[in-house]
Design a protein around this nucleic acid. Structure first.
Lengths: 188, 188
DNA sequence: CAAAACAAACCGACCATCTGGTATGTTTAT
DNA sequence: ATAAACATACCAGATGGTCGGTTTGTTTTG
């Protein structure tokens, strides 16, 4: 119980553990399950310890969200580097990032944003991220077609959350490829 | 305070009021704000009265969700009738139904499903609805292209919830039309 | 047809639990 | 020694839910 108390003090590690545990709980049991007690328990810290790192619950949740945004940023930047084609580069990275959300490596980006759409501050955080990112890639990803492709990626990710195995989801890879192909240059 | 008590007993009306108020609160303030007290107050009934109609909170929320599903069903059926073209008919109705979610007439379908994705029982309800609907329109709406179009509609609806005014959202009608055009028969 | 009997609709008070948060103490590192 | 990193104890409020009672409507009975 008092592990963190007797352990060598490693505040950054504890902070990370709190962030990760909160994200995991939110992902597995939904945002309402993210209580101070539950997070503290999962991170082997007391509620008081948790509140030492984050002044209140809102700060914790927002930190988790921002953390996920950073992970998403990093993943997208990496995908951008691996993509030789200019046109629609960001959109492809965006699609792939959300398609990989389930699998390993990627940020466990799942349940949080959904439940947190309720929170107006998170809305702002997300829309600002999206807007800034879109502005940065305006030259390569401005078309309406690409916008639709990104919307479809959102919908696909949402479907994954809902676990409704639609008929067309029998072969998710093929669907993903088709989405990617939508981002290639059109022969107008 | 004791309006419902002294009023002529009209259980169906009260039940409807409870459903509507719960939906409205969820839409305007998020699912966490849907407390028994808040819903009861909004419907001018006491908590005891509310719990007479719905044995517990879960029953209430699920009833609201199911009610919204029925509204969605009705709206889609109507859109189906107005559409002369067979191929992709359901997908078009689906797209239009979600695009109209904000405006009048349609079911105020917004905040609930989002927050309720947490709840596994609602996941089931939604995926069953979607699967049954998809099975019913298998002949006209089975293509992968149509699936992508529906995903994009989901993403678009989600974007509307998030209020992130993406660059391409300057002209939502044009975007909607482009989505609709994706559902037309391809000239392979 | 009236009165009694019954059931449904609804209220008001109450309770156990949990929540976020505070205040204060104790240990560890510098 | 001073401050950071925790733990412990505690609280005020809210929440979901129960329970007994009261009012209203419907059915049965004489």
């Amino acid at each position: 119980m008092t592990e963190a108390h007797e352990r060598k003090k490693q505040p950054e590690i504890v902070r990370r553990a709190l962030l990760d545990c909160a994200a995991q709980i939110s992902q597995e049991q939904g945002l309402p399950a993210v209580t101070l007690q539950a997070v503290a328990d999962a991170a082997h810290v007391t509620k008081g310890g948790l509140l030492h790192h984050f002044p209140n619950k809102q700060a914790l949740v927002q930190a988790v969200f921002q953390d996920l945004l950073h992970q998403l940023d990093a993943q997208i930047d990496q995908l951008l580097q691996e993509d030789p084609e200019a046109h629609g580069r960001f959109t492809r990275a965006y699609i792939r990032a959300f398609a990989n959300a389930d699998s390993e490596g990627a940020c466990n980006w799942n349940a949080l944003p959904l439940s947190s759409l309720t929170d107006p501050e998170m809305k702002v955080m997300w829309s600002e991220w999206y807007a800034s990112r879109l502005a940065r890639h305006a030259e390569t990803d401005a078309g309406a077609d690409l916008g639709i492709a990104r919307y479809a990626a959102d919908g696909l990710w949402l479907a994954g959350l809902l676990e409704y195995s639609a008929v067309e989801a029998k072969d998710p890879d093929a669907l993903l490829e088709q989405l990617i192909s939508m981002t290639r240059k059109k022969n107008t």
